[in-house]
Design a binder for these strands. Sequence first.
DNA 1: GGTCGTCTGTGCGCTGGTGCACAAATAGAA
DNA 2: TTCTATTTGTGCACCAGCGCACAGACGACC
Lengths: 266, 266
Amino acid sequence: MWAGTDKSNSDPRPHAAFGKQNFLKTRGFMALTNTNVGARENHLLRALPQGDYERLAPNLHLVSFSLGQVLYESGEAMHSVYFPTTSHISLLYTMIDGSTAEMGLVGKEGVVGIALFMGGETTPNRAMVQGGGGAYRMDAKAMLHEFNRGGDFQHLLLRYTQSLMTQISQTAVCNRLHSVEQRLCRWLLMTHDLAQSDELEMTHEFISNMLGVRREGVSVAAQRLQAAGLITYVRGHIQILNRKELLARVCECYQVVRSELDRLLG
Amino acid sequence: MWAGTDKSNSDPRPHAAFGKQNFLKTRGFMALTNTNVGARENHLLRALPQGDYERLAPNLHLVSFSLGQVLYESGEAMHSVYFPTTSHISLLYTMIDGSTAEMGLVGKEGVVGIALFMGGETTPNRAMVQGGGGAYRMDAKAMLHEFNRGGDFQHLLLRYTQSLMTQISQTAVCNRLHSVEQRLCRWLLMTHDLAQSDELEMTHEFISNMLGVRREGVSVAAQRLQAAGLITYVRGHIQILNRKELLARVCECYQVVRSELDRLLG
DNA sequence: GGTCGTCTGTGCGCTGGTGCACAAATAGAA
DNA sequence: TTCTATTTGTGCACCAGCGCACAGACGACC
């Protein structure tokens, strides 16, 4: 499906360097083809009228992201936007002391690089690949040209941006009011929605960086879920066994974000 | 300064009903005048080129907001945007169980009602007046017409939206990682930036609803700040005595949001 | 098969925040 | 002035999550 071989870091472990000291900075990606079959796996591109899509298509370039790859560094100028298809990307915030937390998660229903059309050029976030796979890259110039036509493309991107704001807001509230276990459920469900299988490739350590909690905290929460038969895991492989029950345990935040996404782009 | 007399609720206390059961739902506002002297106290309107501004001016109507007034209810259709001048407005999220938390704070540097031009029509947030004062109202239709011209007006609104996203993101992280005292400092500083004086009118109870913590938690944090001579307060009146020292105690979040706002709109 | 690095499990003590209960102080109204 | 409702202060017991330390389990590689 996706070429997972493009690791410009020599370390074979995807998020090994995700600690507080040194982060992965791999950026290479492979242009696989320019016949854009499949670009419409991305929901935003799919929702475009045929005419608009055909105008854009020549500017869409299929790329492949590998786990742990960093698309944008915080505060760094961006040059493209990405429309994920099978990949998904975390928007992360890193504090001065190195602790991190995830603000949002972008997959096939969205686009990475919002700051480009919002006019800010950069954001104080890092965008990091959390699930390897494909995406369509579009050059900033071409994107802006189409955006400034003011048609459906603009409307879709703005509506998506609003849904992302909802996601971030909900994260803010969720961080404040809900337990690690609830937040873990939410995070597993969101990731599961974007993944192509029931098998998720990530360590407790990695998840703890997303949720902004201790690794041990994730471990004990995960144990409870495993004991209850909702998931099972070993060394970086998590399998979702009972999605229904996860939905029963998760806080309202998951549903709020989903419904708002459906309302805005469904 | 501002007509604080328009209380359609009979209770003389501004946020008396802000508990978990019943919220203020006052919505009336007074159209004071239509000579738009002063509309440019709002930074977005000020930043507009003269020509654009003159085209808009007839659609700007000065209104006055009173403390506790609700501009939009969560999920409710909006019909106008508001450009605050001397007022400031909280964007609040309310959970199913009634607990609340503030996502963002909008004042003279911004606009309330982003969902209208983002295309979502509603948001899952409530917008509530946190500091009484003036604002300029603009009808949705007129606003959209100008927005869709795609010129400076659009660019300014989108850049502001991005800065608001930063604010919300930062709130998410801050909620996760920082103490009540730090968050109280941040909140006091942000509010102070928007207020016209060193005197802030709000109870600990009110602040606790903004920060999403217990009232007692706010009280003890406020005591420490008072003991250190940074603020002084009695029954709903807080006075900022030493802003400099507050800046020394606040977490990085305050500066991040400020700098990003300056970068995007400064 | 043995080694080594990584991942997960477990057990401390500690701290910040919670929920509750009630006392004290204050402003505003009668 | 007195009364009353609101606001703030204080003291619990309690719990989730933290930081630290170390043990055990697993997998990849020699």
